[in-house]
């Protein structure tokens, strides 16, 4: 019995090198040389996010809200859609800013972002999810962990569907893959398929 085959990758989003792909199709392609903060601004505008809170967030949260909003557009999900996220550098992008501010004045508006799971909170607020959350740290993309843990949530009924993936940010280099996993779709939710989606970042 292979229960894993019951779930599918319904939708996937990839953000890397100035490009955003939805189900492997390019939906945004900006000059990879533009700086990261400009990329986040331009992507917000061009993809019509219309969520002013976005501008107050740290970069990791912006990536997460950007990715999840496009991923979940016109999709069926419920408040029990779980979030299973991972990366290598935790919240070090904003941690470094907080550390630098310790020399002078520390800002609570910066400190509040110095945990990797804050992005799960921002996504939950944006999409009204009151679901299971977890943030795993891994030295590199680990499809096994994402598939295995998402499956435990789905099989035990702790989640109706799952958004899982990788959201890495280090030295302004970003690398995001988010997948909506549910009963609908054609791509089986397996390690191989997840790996394939992660490796895909150029046509």
């Amino acid at each position: 019995m292979d229960i894993a085959r019951k779930h599918f990758i319904t939708n996937s989003i990839r953000i890397k090198n100035g490009k955003i792909f939805l189900n492997k199709e390019t939906i945004l392609s900006l000059d990879p040389k533009i700086d990261f903060s400009q990329f986040l601004k331009d992507a917000y505008k061009q993809l019509a996010l219309k969520y002013p809170k976005y501008h107050k967030m740290d970069s990791l949260c912006k990536l997460g809200v950007l990715g999840s909003t496009i991923l979940l557009r016109d999709q069926d999900f419920t408040e029990n859609t779980a979030l299973v996220f991972s990366n290598a550098s935790s919240s070090h992008d904003i941690d470094i800013k907080h550390k630098q501010s310790m020399e002078s004045i520390v800002s609570p508006a910066v400190f509040v972002y110095t945990l990797p799971n804050i992005v799960l909170g921002e996504i939950s607020i944006k999409h009204k999810l009151q679901s299971e959350n977890v943030f795993f740290i891994e030295d590199q993309f680990n499809a096994d962990l994402l598939v295995d843990y998402s499956e435990t949530l789905l099989k035990s009924g702790k989640a109706s569907s799952v958004v899982c993936g990788w959201i890495e940010l280090k030295n302004d280099q970003y690398d995001v893959l988010l997948c909506l996993v549910s009963n609908n779709g054609e791509i089986p939710f397996t390690r191989e398929k997840l790996e394939e989606l992660y490796r895909f970042d150029n046509e």
């Binding site: 509040v112 939950s124 607020i125 009151q130 959350n133």
Partner: peptide, 11 residues
């Protein structure tokens, strides 16, 4: 065991 997000405020 269960976790649940408030979906209300980050801090």
């Amino acid at each position: 065991d269960a976790t649940s997000n408030d979906a209300n405020h980050i801090s």
